Simulated assay, not measured.
Amino acid sequence: MIIEFDGEVFRWDAREDSSWFFTSVPPELSEEIREIPRPYRGFGSVRVRARVGGSEWTTSIFPSSGSGSYVLPLKKAVRTAEDLIDGGPVTVRLEVLDG
């Protein structure tokens, strides 16, 4: 399964000194991902290949508590290479590897 979406970069604010940044997979696409049969992985994570601009990497998306959406972590190397900033836009292509 391959999905594409536009999102917004946000900083994980559970701790003041957090340097973790994410974007949310839209709820309707998150629901489609949840429906894919697959073995359970820790924290309900789903393995994906992500692409933002010219950057591609393998990672996992995680269910976000309360929102019903998955979140994609955006590592610093990707944020730097693609000029992503907190609150800024991001266009994502995800290939779901689990399932």
Rank of each mutant, 00 (worst) to 15 (best):
S18Y: 09
R51N: 05
E16F: 10
S45G: 08
A14L: 15
E16S: 14
S30W: 02
F43S: 05
G44T: 06
V46I: 15
A14F: 15
F43L: 11
L29R: 12
P26R: 14
S30P: 05
G42C: 03
P39R: 02
R15E: 03
R15F: 07
P27G: 04
I36Q: 04
P63D: 03
T23F: 11
P63I: 02
I36G: 01
E28Y: 09
G53P: 06
R47Y: 03
E32T: 15
G54C: 08
E16G: 15
F43P: 00
L29E: 09
F21N: 09
T23I: 12
V25W: 08
G42I: 08
S55L: 14
P37G: 07
F21C: 08
V52Q: 05
R47V: 11
W57V: 07
S19H: 13
I61R: 01
E35F: 00
S55Q: 11
V48G: 02
P26I: 11
P26Y: 12
Y40E: 13
P39H: 02
R34A: 09
S18R: 06
T23D: 06
G54L: 12
T58A: 07
E32A: 15
I36H: 02
S24A: 10
S18K: 12
R51Y: 12
S60D: 10
G54E: 07
W20E: 09
G44I: 12
G53D: 07
S19W: 04
F43A: 07
R41A: 12
G54Y: 03
E56W: 03
R47F: 04
V25R: 04
S19E: 14
R15K: 15
P63C: 10
P39K: 10
V48L: 05
S30K: 00
I36P: 03
F43I: 02
S30V: 06
P39S: 06
G42V: 05
T59M: 10
G42S: 07
Y40M: 11
E31C: 08
Y40Q: 07
V52Y: 01
V25I: 14
S18C: 06
R49C: 01
E56F: 05
G54P: 00
I61A: 03
S45Y: 02
S55G: 11
W20M: 15
I61Y: 00
Y40P: 12
S19G: 07
R49S: 10
I36R: 07
F43H: 08
S30G: 04
L29D: 03
E35P: 00
F43V: 05
D17N: 14
P26L: 13
I36T: 01
I33V: 13
P39Y: 07
F62G: 05
G44R: 04
W57S: 12
S24L: 12
A50F: 04
A14P: 09
V48A: 01
E16Q: 15
P39E: 13
F62K: 06
P39M: 01
E35D: 02
G44Y: 08
R47A: 11
R34G: 06
S60C: 12
F22M: 07
